[in-house]
Design a protein around this nucleic acid. Structure first.
Lengths: 239, 239
DNA sequence: TCAAAAGTGTTGACTCTACACCCATGT
DNA sequence: ACATGGGTGTAGAGTCAACACTTTTGA
């Protein structure tokens, strides 16, 4: 800051895009706003940063308040920061959005302090005209995009599964997030053949119909080699 | 924000990681701080967000002030936000870091308002003990990581080249950023065979010694299929 | 004629998709 | 027995790294 202008003072909030997979669909945790502005609208959970808190700390505090989940099974990362001057009618608020991926089983709807926190399917919110508060639809879209992209090259899909999981459960996560179907045989080979993605627990069985499946937990890898490739979209026909 | 705490007031700054490629090395534009804190230390250029400015606007204003470059040839994207309570001794400052990739030829050292803005090689700054101001070494490291990763799956490398460029010039960008050497023959095929990466300008020649090369400009693609793969790092020998 | 840089062809190793097939359980 | 889902084998198509080889210029 060579030519130092006087700092303009701004409120900093942390907003959360909390995603899970349930019934084969990607869902997001939203609250119904009880106060103005945008009273009655759906919004991402969030809150202002406290004086002695860093951004990641504020995000995990908010996550715990909404879901009761603490850092062990969940994945939490910074997503992006939104600071358009008109985004909050109360004044200048900059929102540092974070993305959380949580297992469905670990989340008893909401252990929330918020009156009205519930899971909603992400897809209709992105497609439809249900207007979210503030610029939260854009933030949600960015969060879903990021989650979709990260499944390709990171082992994050496992963050959606309660810890001992089967390969088929993991596959259903990919299918839900990407909206595709994947060949179970090839998927199995790819996952078990990628070093550090999953580790067998030894404990083997679990009933879901049919032959019992092996149980796995997350491996130690942080990036996948080779990546899990999303099937290419069908190209539009030539004119 | 269901249970609304009173907003804690924070100053919001925009910091820039401005990268270019020069003489086969990745370089970053840094200023020498003329005032406390960290007087005399190297720092990323940056400044506070103005009342009616959004974050991208503040970033491109700062970029223009430092380099004279405006949005056409440069790439500018948000990197991450840093908000640890102790990062600035003057008080609570949250920095929204941005990453800019600029062509070397377009940057006359610095058309800057800053007394002392210069290009520095990135690698020694990341390795060595030259202490940057604030947490700017971490921000720089994150910016370089992001640039390295993005070359793989986006056509951004072209942002480092003054617009009509040859395939070999583009290859030197990859080699500088990744610190590797690439096979010129295979690189040529991969680039020209990836749809939307580069477009021939028709105008063909340019002297650099040897046979004249075709000139290209950036194509319209935003992601690359297939990706440009970085050679795998050599695994450490088994103990 | 030679050096230097641009660009093409080819080959073997690898990877991916598609699908036939076998395995282990509940009913 | 047989339906249901878990898991393995294999062949054809495609991709990639390595490198021999040709093209086009300046000196």
């Amino acid at each position: 800051m060579p030519a130092m202008e006087s700092p303009f003072i701004i409120a900093v909030a942390v907003d959360l895009v909390i995603l899970t997979v349930h019934d084969g669909a990607l869902e997001v945790l939203l609250v119904t706003r009880g106060i103005e502005p945008h009273r009655g609208r759906l919004a991402l959970p969030g809150g202002f940063v406290l004086p002695d808190e860093d951004l990641a700390g504020a995000a995990s505090r908010e996550l715990a308040e909404e879901t009761g989940l603490t850092g062990l099974t969940v994945h939490l990362e910074q997503l992006a920061t939104y600071g358009h001057p008109g985004r909050d009618p109360r004044g200048r608020v900059v929102a540092v959005a974070h993305l959380a991926l949580v297992p469905n089983a670990g989340t008893p709807v909401a252990g929330s302090d918020a009156a009205d926190a519930r899971w909603y399917r992400a897809e209709p919110l992105l497609q439809g005209r249900n207007r979210l508060a503030f610029d939260h639809r854009r933030i949600l879209a960015d969060g879903v995009d990021r989650a979709r992209a990260k499944l390709e090259y990171s082992p994050l899909a496992a963050a959606f599964c309660p810890p001992p999981f089967t390969i088929a459960e993991l596959r259903r996560v990919y299918e839900a997030v990407w909206g595709t179907t994947l060949d179970p045989r090839n998927f199995h080979r790819k996952v078990t053949g990628t070093p550090g993605f999953v580790e067998p627990t030894g404990a083997t069985t679990n009933r879901q119909g049919g032959r019992p499946a092996q149980l796995y937990r997350r491996g130690s890898a942080t990036v996948l080699h080779p990546a899990m490739l999303r099937p290419a979209e069908a190209a539009p026909p030539a004119p």
